[in-house]
């Protein structure tokens, strides 16, 4: 699973990436997290809220730090 966290490096974006990393470690899910900080790339996903979470090219959440339970649900699919 290919997870991308879009955000220019603000506090919320880092928190989101950290949370996802934690969930991956806890559940042992087969996934990688990548932070995307480049504005051009962020824009090309068509989202405006940051942080946004993209999993396998699907926008899962935008403009807020997701809850841990939500992340678990995404990873289980």
């Amino acid at each position: 699973m290919d997870i991308k966290v879009l955000g220019p490096g603000c506090a919320k974006c880092n928190k989101t990436a950290k949370l996802i990393q934690e969930v991956i470690e806890e559940t042992g899910a087969d996934a990688t997290v990548e932070k995307v900080t480049d504005m051009m790339q962020i824009a090309s996903y068509g989202v405006f809220g940051t942080p946004s979470v993209i999993i396998d090219n699907d926008v899962k959440c935008t403009g807020k730090v997701p809850k841990k339970d939500d992340i678990k649900a995404w990873l289980n699919k």
């Binding site: 955000g7 220019p8 962020i42 824009a43 940051t50 403009g63």
Partner: peptide, 8 residues
Amino acid sequence: CSCSAVPL
């Protein structure tokens, strides 16, 4: 949030 001013 002003940090998302650019994507917005």
